[in-house]
Design a protein around this nucleic acid. Sequence first.
DNA 1: TTCATAATAGTAACCATTACTGTCTTGGCG
DNA 2: CGCCAAGACAGTAATGGTTACTATTATGAA
Lengths: 149, 149
Amino acid sequence: MVTIMNKVQANAKPAGLRMTRQRRLILEELDAPGRHPTADAVYQQVRRRIPNISLGTVYRNLEVLSQAGMIRKLHIGSGQKRYDRKLHKHYHVHCVQCGRISDLPGGPFGDLEEVARGNSDFDIIGYELEFEGLCRQCKDSSPRQREPN
Amino acid sequence: MVTIMNKVQANAKPAGLRMTRQRRLILEELDAPGRHPTADAVYQQVRRRIPNISLGTVYRNLEVLSQAGMIRKLHIGSGQKRYDRKLHKHYHVHCVQCGRISDLPGGPFGDLEEVARGNSDFDIIGYELEFEGLCRQCKDSSPRQREPN
DNA sequence: TTCATAATAGTAACCATTACTGTCTTGGCG
DNA sequence: CGCCAAGACAGTAATGGTTACTATTATGAA
Ligand SMILES: [Mn+2]
Ligand SMILES: [Mn+2]
Ligand SMILES: [Zn+2]
Ligand SMILES: [Zn+2]
């Protein structure tokens, strides 16, 4: 009866994934478009509805959901991992001032992989590309501190 | 927080840094071309000559040397940071099997930044690009475990 | 409704890195 | 050369992010 469960099974990855309240809220938190929250940010949000949810539960679910291909785990910069519900290939811009991460509109660039293939004896299977810069806010306001996503 | 960076730029030369035995060996460890060791790998190597060197000393020096612009700190993938003596802009290939990191021969690609600038309201100042794949060894041998750099 | 087992809360452990502290070195100056 | 301020050190504790463990609870297929 519940659509999300159907979605899970429609997405066809894992038998044996149960849809718990915790998991549903974590997923909903990522459903808002354009967000790339850290595990802790998800935790803080979900905590408002399930005050005693465990941080471990958040981590476990983020892992299990990305294993199942329902979300993507991002390793951007040197800090915490980020999670992204947008599954198709796209690039990110990372504000070096406040840590904000935004999608870069516009599809993937020309074939970087091809160039790499010609120059390496590695069997190239992909690449990671992310841009760095200053977001609009940080560009034209006095330096603030970290207020990610 | 006035330190080495300033001194170095003032003196136009990495003097102002004292040259200790520890620092020299750490630097020598990175001088071997094509290496991208982790802090721990450097530690293990230098330890053979200075058995009681502190891991903290290795970290402190790697930090101070990259602040001074004598080495570069790399954040590749989700694991430990890597250090690179090669200062000019170049790309890396990362073996997803064994973790090895190699330089990609051939200079920087065309203007990725320009494309990003057109698509974002961020003030783009640079980008990080790294390729993933299987190194020669992992490509044609049975799966091994992590034996980085 | 039952029941095997997936998932949870709570907590401990882990790993990479950084911070602290008292002692030892280094190197510029005489 | 030796002096000595402060840079660097070893040893160790602390931190931050993440994962592992465990006894208990909740899910959902039959
Ligand atoms: Mn995204
Ligand atoms: Mn390199
Ligand atoms: Zn910003
Ligand atoms: Zn390999």
